[in-house]
């Protein structure tokens, strides 16, 4: 049993900041703020990511009217987590988590555990990704003229923060499935969707098994950042397991961009991707009563640049959180 259930975890406030490309995408109008400057008036991309988180967290706490936070869970994609630099300013117990792009569900899930089981009043979860900072971290210099593979994905510039509380509100976090790491010998770092699809499949199946649910119990199940290929692969795997999808499966990486017209290859990726879609679009859909219960299956490719160069394959993970309208 890897699914934890919560009875008393509510969403107090949330905030999302995205970059220019995300703002121009089909979900642009759902996001709270956006920035056209990838530097955010900072000297480097890494510092810009910290600044983006700072703005996002400040606004989230203001919206939630919370003066103090009992505990913070956060994570990003940069080596040794650049959120630690912001953590020193926040003056609250802090846990940095790394689950690559699965950070969104991982941080929210942990925050929910703290509210439910540690009886904390306000717990903050935030994650971010920055396309240029991630490009530098995982791939090539930003100005390097290289033709990317068509199967690659484009990292989303976004920061999302959510404040969970035990005080009643319109949205609640009801369950958290901690995924196990899988490695099915996919080794192409330009094609992470394929490596992550089996992890998403396994987590969805575990979640269904633990809670005795199927697709009928959800209005929407979204995977984190599989992109076009990974999503197609996941759909096929789920159909093979004899589940009816009925248009209830989607992918945040596909939703956030217009993949036919924006230059993003197979879709979006990064921790900011699933966080921005969840907090921006899906929370609003839940509140506007379009949906009652959703499941976010945030997928993460846990590869290490050195080890993939040493020809090891890509381990991946997926964590799921279920959000419902109260």
């Amino acid at each position: 049993m890897t699914t934890l259930q919560f009875k008393n975890v509510y969403v107090k406030s949330e905030n999302v900041i995205v970059g220019k490309l995300e703002k121009e995408g089909p979900l642009g109008s759902y996001f709270d703020d956006y920035t056209c400057d990838p530097y955010l008036n900072q000297p480097s991309f890494e510092q810009a990511e910290i600044e983006m988180n700072r703005l996002c967290v400040d606004k989230c706490l203001k919206k939630g009217k919370a003066e103090t936070v009992d505990l913070i869970y956060a994570g990003d994609l940069i080596n040794q987590l650049c959120t630690h630099y912001l953590a020193s300013e926040l003056k609250a117990p802090f846990v940095g988590l790394y689950g690559a792009c699965s950070n969104s569900a991982l941080t929210i899930g942990h925050a929910a555990m703290a509210v439910e089981h540690l009886h904390m009043k306000h717990v903050l979860a935030f994650t971010s990704s920055h396309t240029q900072a991630a490009e530098r971290q995982f791939r090539y210099p930003n100005e390097y003229g290289v033709q990317k593979k068509e199967c690659s994905t484009s990292t989303v510039t976004a920061s999302g923060a959510v404040l969970l509380s035990n005080e009643f509100s319109d949205l609640k976090v009801t369950s958290f499935t901690i995924g196990s790491v899988v490695d099915w010998q996919f080794s192409d770092v330009n094609d992470m969707g394929k490596a992550m699809a089996p992890a998403a499949y396994q987590t969805i199946m575990t979640h269904f098994e633990d809670l005795g649910r199927t697709f009928d119990d959800y209005d929407l199940i979204v995977s984190g950042d599989l992109g076009k290929i990974g999503y197609a692969m996941l759909s096929e795997m789920i159909e093979k397991a004899r589940f009816q999808l009925e248009n209830k499966l989607n992918d945040c990486g596909i939703m956030i961009y217009d993949i036919n017209h924006q230059d993003v290859f197979c879709g979006g990726s990064g921790c900011g991707c699933s966080m921005a879609v969840l907090l921006g679009k899906l929370f609003k859909d839940l509140r506007s009563k379009k949906m009652k219960r959703i499941l976010l299956v945030a997928t993460g490719s846990l590869h290490n640049v050195f080890l993939t160069q040493q020809k090891l394959s890509i381990p991946s993970v997926a964590h799921a959180i279920c959000i419902e309208r109260s």
Partner: peptide, 13 residues
């Protein structure tokens, strides 16, 4: 799994 993955390819032109 690898059989499923081989069915999903994008054209690299």
């Amino acid at each position: 799994l690898h059989e499923i993955s081989s069915r999903h390819q994008v054209n690299d032109h």
